[in-house]
Amino acid sequence: MSTLTRRQILGWAASSALIHTPARAAVEPKLSALADGVYAFTGAEEMMEPANQGAICNVGLIVGTESAALIDSGGSYLEGVELLRAVREITDKPLRYLINTHMHPDHIFGNAAFKETGAQIVGHTNLPAALEARGAFYLQSFRRQLGEELMRGVEIIPPTVLVADRTELDLGDRKLDLRAWQPAHTDNDLTVMDRTSGTFFAGDLVFLGHLPTMDGSLLGWMRQLDELAAIAASGVVPGHGPSPSAWPDAIAPERRYFETLASDLRAAIKAGVPLAEAVTTAGQSERAKWKLFDEYNERNATTAYAELEWE
């Protein structure tokens, strides 16, 4: 069986989902106005699960005089369909760009819903390889987590417009500055700045409320926080958490968490405490300050321990 065949099968799955219109959403992503031409949906601070349709990440919409750009497509085909409907209620301008801020399923599982719009998918230059390595696994494991119903129509669709460092997109009298970052949350983090309103879409480089998750490099993330904070913005739409939030204040909680986690782990590594033991205590003083702490902290600590012991 070739890749082509696999692609075809996924294609069939998508088209059958288009024919059988999915049941109406229980949780409906609504895009609310943040500024003139700027809209956002605030995801639930939960794990992706059937009850929330995978709609856990924040999504942005920016509309210019000629076209529009959507930032992330949500955590299911169904959420993608709902988002597209919300976009259409706001504007009839062509959706020219679908920007994926990084590889995680809650941000990209809705991509297939935008096929018919002709939107070009934009991503970090490392995103295609990351999706190639993980795509099949995401499709398989999220079937378990989200269920067959919500996984119907979900396809891994890589970006065709790649950002290696910085790129400008023009929506008509409205310019977006896209920036590709060094490994931090993942090795394919991309941010979007709307110059007109000063709204900064940070993707998962900024978490509020929801504990940050580590799938790239803790040290890389910490190293780039100052650079991130130096960005002049009127407000931020984080990847997870209230949108908009105050900028750069929104970075403070995750900076404190990273420093706590790193300092706990460095002490453990120095004292020769093995990984299995160190990860059960590192970062625990942050527990009351975050949602989903128990779901992600030990995992973060495991990943970070393996990175920090090479310092």
Partner: peptide
């Protein structure tokens, strides 16, 4: 557990190749 072999390869693949062979003994 799930996905250890097929899914997350190097979290930071370029760096992993660059540092290959470095050894540390504690």
């Amino acid at each position: 557990a799930s996905g250890g072999c097929s899914a997350p390869a190097a979290k930071n693949s370029k760096e992993a190749l660059a540092a290959m062979g470095q050894m540390k003994l504690r």
